[in-house]
Amino acid sequence: MTLLAQSPMSLHDTYAAPVEHRFNPYSENGGTILAIAGADFSVIAGDTRQSEGYSIQTRYARKVFQLTDNAVLATNGFAADGKNFVRRLKQSLEWYQHNHHKQMGLKAIARLIQTMLYGRRFFPYYVYNILGGIEEDGSGAVYSFDPVGSYEREACRAAGAAQALVQPFLDNQIYFKNQQPEPGAEPFVPGRLPLSTVLGLVVDSFTSATERHIEVGDGIEIFIVMAKGRSPESLLDEKLGEGMTIEEVPPVGEGGEERTFLLSGPLKRD
């Protein structure tokens, strides 16, 4: 009889149903990126903090990358995917350069990014991309993407952890939403602001985001791509913010007449 007796409860625990451990291939690394287009320039910026949950992994991780002489890509979301995506994209662009002996145009890069992202439709790069640069017609342009490749050309876009904080501010300051010109004054046209104003707005956006969002901070990197014929004097004469440095980024190829500058500095630390 004892043989048939129920085993004690404690024994049952040994045979508990198997617990499923699943590997999560994605992570979210915080940070924020933003890009604004001007008439003959484009500004692409990102902060440099990389975090996971409440831990800061590094205070300096690049999120904004020069692709060609007239294109810069900002990437945000899962940092590993972002890095890998940029690596593959650069490789594609290099192949293009070798095959055609010219650099790929901004519009074509945008379409290439879509194709690459959508190619991974069912195991996506968990990355939000913003592409900025100079279009073939010499105008400043911004393209924004979702992780699976939907994209759109815009005058400005913010993405990442502080998107909700920054985007409505840009709606107001870049798209002039909820603003009306004085009676008789020129109508507002988005994407025509002077560079100094745009840089002011970029820095303000990041200081605001740093103030209110824990995943944003440490440093800021602002790439400025200038169209042919635009003199960089206006930029070099600019009174830079505290601790900000500016350098010219060397051209990727033989060097056209577009010029790229990198403006970088620390973000508020309190």
Partner: peptide, 8 residues
């Protein structure tokens, strides 16, 4: 969103 705009 209010935090972001107000801060700016």
């Amino acid at each position: 969103k209010l935090f972001g705009v107000a801060e700016g």
